[in-house]
């Protein structure tokens, strides 16, 4: 469970300050797939960074699993952070590491060597055949799948995704979103998904928050689209859209 209560976050800017989040309260349940939408600059990434303790709130509290993050030491925060996976818009893979080593890196940070887990995760995202390649040899969609495997390899309870499909074309977007839905169904992971693409949120999330100028403009249940709008392949989607 993720609970934000009256969270305000402002960044100093010269003499004044920018308020990225303004008195925001929000609860995200376990195993929920929760969407966050909003215009550029509305505070979406800041919200994720607060949940991941990369940023401390200026006021208010952020609780994850009932624990107030403001009360933890930097070392404890680092340990908690390892229980939360993160997926980025630009994938953030290490260019000089192989696919296998990229996925193994979070385990290495914890001095764990679990080649079987790495292999399992690569199979889960259907990238097992590419484990010796480097990221530059992969397409954007493949890179994002590797990044998802990396985020999952430590079996986090929470997965934070910041615009995971914004650098991808629509066919690849469907592929990556199908994997994220699988993650939730198979591992019971709570997923918080930031995207400016409304269709992406609509197709996958249970609920969504709309941010505007750092405030919660709306909180809504998401009605899934009629099933035919979910396409298994880019070709099917393109044919349906164009015909």
């Amino acid at each position: 469970m993720i609970e934000l209560s009256h969270v305000t976050k402002s960044f100093p800017q010269g003499r004044s300050a920018v308020t990225a989040l303004d008195d925001l309260s929000l609860t995200i349940g376990d195993r929920e797939m929760f969407g966050i939408v909003g215009e550029s600059g509305s505070g979406k990434s800041t919200l994720l960074r607060l949940i991941n303790h990369l940023e401390a709130p200026t006021s208010g509290t952020v609780r994850v699993g009932g624990e107030d993050l403001g009360a933890l030491s930097p070392r404890e925060l680092r340990v908690r952070r390892r229980g939360i996976g993160m997926v980025f818009q630009q994938f953030n893979l290490l260019g000089n590491a192989t696919v296998h080593d990229n996925v193994a890196r979070p385990l290495r940070l914890q001095r764990r060597r679990e080649p079987d887990t790495v292999q399992q995760m690569l199979e889960f995202v259907k990238m097992a055949g590419h484990s010796r390649k480097h990221p530059s040899q992969l397409s954007g969609g493949e890179q994002q799948r590797v990044a998802i495997a990396r985020a999952l390899v430590t079996r986090p309870k929470i997965l934070l995704c910041d615009e995971p499909t914004s650098a991808l074309d629509s066919g690849t977007t469907d592929e990556v979103m199908a994997i994220l839905r699988d993650v939730r169904d198979r591992f019971g992971t709570t997923i918080v998904l930031v995207s400016h693409e409304l269709e992406v949120i609509k197709a996958s999330c249970d609920r969504a928050a709309v941010l505007s100028g750092g405030r919660l403009a709306a909180l809504t249940e998401v009605t899934p689209p009629p099933p035919r709008e979910r396409f298994d392949s880019y070709a099917a989607r393109a044919r349906e859209f164009l015909a």
Binding site: N52, L54, R78, V79, R80, R81, R82, I84, M86, F88, Q90, N92, L94, R105, P106, L109
Partner: peptide, 16 residues
């Protein structure tokens, strides 16, 4: 900068 962001999100200490 994304590489640093990644390391921090994974809970890396300074030496890591």
């Amino acid at each position: 900068e994304q590489t640093v962001e990644l390391a921090r999100s994974l809970g890396a200490g300074p030496l890591q």
